[in-house]
Amino acid sequence: MKFAVFTDSTPEWAPEEAAKILAEQGWHGIEWRITDPVESSRPTFWAGNRATWPLTGLEAHLGDIRSVTQSAGLAMPALGGYVTPRQREDAERMLAAAAALDAGQVRFLGVNTEKGQSYREAFAAYRADWEWLEGRARHHGVRALLELHHESLTASASAARRLVEGLDPRYVGVLHDIGNTVIEGWEEPAHALDLLGEYLAHVHVKNVAFHLSGVQNDGTLRWEPKWVPLREGRADLAEFFKALAVAGYASWVTVEDFSVALPLAERTAANLEYLTGLARAAGYDLG
């Protein structure tokens, strides 16, 4: 098992700084955030994020991405894309970039129903999108990743398995994100991982807790999810790592921690120490 950081969670660092600090802390890899920038007066996770490579004209940046990553001695377990299979030109661009960079995998965003569309109609259309994507991933020799994500057609492992069933797992895989499933799509992790089987291709970890957001006039309590440090949320990560071991998963675990209780450098260092301990306790030999 190896550990990486997705740079959507390192907004304060420019690419060279992110790679250097993470390598010094002992991380094995970096999962680059690739999307066209959104301006902000200060760096945040989703706007003004400095650890981002632009999607438009991505081809011109491939040499820099490779150089920054390799100079730090890091690997790229996947590229963190923000496009869907319906964005055909951009999907092709991401797959080609993964092939050129030897990243091997690309995360694709999920979709939801559109106005006036039933879930079954949307699901059938999305399956057709993934059939197209499978062919393009095969062409480039890389794998397209379907992420379990709340507020999408495939929030759960069950829905994801149904979507990709019959597609070639060499070119289509599922990215299990336990933090997202806390919000929607929760299934017992051991069951979810077993269900995904050969389609389990990548893992993200973060954590979430529900906080009281308000009380209505009739006394009804309203709760909302908030990102919290890895040790503090609803997901039991110790049990999750044990489930990964039982499932035979021995590949990458990428962290995208959106909590802000600790300064960024302290947060990434503490996360690596914590996850390394969990992996060893689950029986992984980390060398």
Rank of each mutant, 00 (worst) to 15 (best):
V164E: 01
E184P: 04
G233H: 04
D236M: 06
R231H: 14
A190M: 11
V253Q: 01
A160T: 03
P225C: 12
T220Y: 10
T220I: 09
L244N: 03
A192M: 09
V182K: 07
V164T: 05
H211C: 13
V208Q: 04
V164C: 03
N180G: 05
Q216H: 14
D168Q: 04
H211A: 15
L163A: 05
A190E: 14
A201P: 00
L196C: 09
L244S: 04
L167C: 07
N207P: 08
A250H: 10
V255I: 15
G197H: 10
S251V: 06
L244C: 06
E188C: 09
R234Y: 11
F241M: 13
S251L: 09
E198T: 10
A250I: 03
P225L: 12
H202W: 03
A159W: 02
G185L: 06
I183M: 09
G173S: 05
A250K: 09
P229T: 11
L163I: 09
T254P: 01
L167H: 04
V164H: 01
V215F: 12
G214Y: 11
A160G: 12
Y171W: 10
V255K: 03
G166W: 07
L237E: 02
A201I: 00
L262I: 14
V215S: 12
R222W: 13
Y249C: 04
D194T: 15
K206F: 04
V246R: 13
Y249E: 03
S158Y: 10
A247S: 11
F258Y: 14
N217Y: 13
L193S: 08
A261C: 13
K226L: 14
G166D: 07
G166K: 09
V205Q: 03
L196N: 03
T181W: 00
A201C: 05
E165W: 07
W252Y: 11
F210P: 01
